[in-house]
Design a protein around this nucleic acid. Structure first.
Lengths: 104, 104
DNA sequence: CTGTATCCTGATTGATACTG
DNA sequence: CAGTATCAATCAGGATACAG
């Protein structure tokens, strides 16, 4: 069952959102930090490292002053677009059914 | 963006697997405990309760001796099949690219 | 059988300060 | 700018015992 593989690579709280943020082009670390709502620097760099390991994103360092680092989706990463698409569509059409948990 | 709604309902470690387990028919609590690999009783009942709140599953109690409780997907829950399908297909075709994290 | 309550431990996270 | 190191705090999860 490939579901498990997909969950291994995309699972967790953040990767889907990081991919979404990179869907329309490369971004720098600081831009991702701003665009991925609520993520902290530590977690962002860890997630990006994992995604780089799994070849979802490509990291490019420009030796300017100061250095700039950009992240972009690989072809593999871009292929996850199909998943984002289905998630988005499903979430959209079923939005009205969601119940927000009342804190006690 | 509906992605967030979908993540709210389906996110976390277990819901996708629970839905997968229920895809071909209703199951009892103890069957789910066996079929959803690695989940504990506490977590399973919590997840099922959340999914019932969000109308992904329907819970039915049969007053036998002892009681039996069955869970089945609602139409809404069944509609998540499209997501499982895409995840499965994507995971399948990209399985060879995955890198398993070496523990230190 | 189907859960809930309690306790406990290890993993995850946020904040802050710091490095190159 | 782009991270890493450290520490404290939180949280999620397992095991067990117990209730309906």
């Amino acid at each position: 069952m490939g579901v498990h593989d997909a969950m291994y690579v995309l699972g967790g709280k953040w990767k889907i959102y990081i991919i979404t943020a990179l869907l329309f082009g490369s971004k720098r670390y600081s831009e991702l930090l701003r665009d991925v709502q609520g993520i902290s620097g530590k977690v962002l760099s860890r997630e990006l490292k994992e995604m780089e390991t799994n070849r979802l994103v490509k990291r490019t360092v420009s030796v300017t002053q100061p250095v700039t680092v950009t992240y972009e989706l690989t072809e593999y990463g871009k292929s996850a677009k199909s998943i984002i698409g289905v998630l988005s569509e499903w979430g959209e059409t079923h939005r009205n059914l969601i119940v927000i948990d009342e804190p006690l």
